[in-house]
Amino acid sequence: MSFHYWFFDLDNTLHHAGVAIFPRINQMMTAYVAEKLCLDLVSAQSLRQAYWQRYGATMLGLIRHHAIDPHEFLAASHTFPDLATLIRSERGLRDSLRRLPGHKRLLTNAPYGYATRVIQHLGLHMQLGRLYAIEHMRLHGEYRPKPSRRMLRAILARERIPARRAVLIEDSLENLKAARALGMRTVWVTGLLGPGQIGANGRVQPRLKPKWCDVQVKSIQQLARVSQRLASPS
């Protein structure tokens, strides 16, 4: 078995962001859009969601159509004085990652400061050798967050590994589909959401595992048991 590089998403993969954090982020994003664009909260929420669905990230739409400062936007929507009280996670998460053979990385569309604080709270900062946040996802001066295939190729090139030795662990099916198209192995983490329920992207979870997902797990703690199914030839 070749050693894998495990690329972990953050929100709703390593912790359950949908319980308390996502509602707070959505509220702060909407307030920011309303203030910057002089909109009421209902109109701001509608525009924010439209940009999210069109571009994969609200920030990209705001940059393209309104020339907002991305650093200001990320700070305004991801600063939590009480972050530790909002995080919901499984016990034994650190041991679960330790049991996996190979190298671990974080690959998230969240901003670096927020991601670092969450990882430190979860006690995973020693397990994850490198952190890729949205600030690191720029190609030729433009942000290219997941599910950008060009960005995924660039990260694989930086790590100097072929796609077949990399595994992406995610809750987002769109991101997993992009990774699988490049030849990466894929793990779909369903977490608190079961088939037929509505995910963070507003779409209904499929009742069957899509063909571009090699493995489906409900919990990160199941990864060690299924890792052999992700083995690639030497």
Rank of each mutant, 00 (worst) to 15 (best):
R207F: 14
R225P: 00
K218A: 13
Q216F: 05
N201R: 11
G199T: 05
K209I: 09
R207L: 14
K209P: 05
P210S: 12
Q205P: 01
A200G: 07
V215Q: 07
R207E: 15
S219Y: 12
Q221S: 09
Q222H: 15
S219W: 12
N201M: 10
W212G: 02
R207S: 15
N201W: 11
C213M: 09
D214G: 04
C213Y: 01
A200K: 03
N201T: 11
G202H: 13
L208A: 15
Q222M: 06
D214N: 10
A224W: 02
R225V: 00
Q222C: 00
V215D: 06
R225F: 00
Q221A: 10
V215M: 07
R203V: 15
G202Y: 15
P210M: 09
K211Q: 14
V204A: 04
V217Y: 07
Q228T: 01
G199Y: 04
R207D: 13
Q222T: 06
Q205K: 10
L223V: 01
N201F: 12
Q228A: 00
Q216Y: 05
K218N: 12
K218P: 02
K211R: 15
Q205I: 09
G202N: 13
L208V: 13
V215A: 07
R203C: 10
Q216S: 14
K209W: 06
D214Y: 01
P210Q: 11
Q216T: 03
P206V: 11
L208R: 10
R203T: 15
C213E: 05
P210E: 14
N201D: 15
P206L: 11
V226Y: 02
K211N: 12
V204N: 00
S227R: 02
R225Y: 00
N201E: 11
I220P: 02
G202I: 11
A224I: 04
V226C: 05
G202P: 06
S219H: 13
A200V: 10
A200C: 01
G199D: 15
D214H: 06
S219D: 14
S227F: 02
L208S: 14
A224K: 02
Q228L: 00
V226Q: 04
Q216M: 12
R207Y: 10
S219K: 14
L208C: 08
Q216V: 05
Q221E: 08
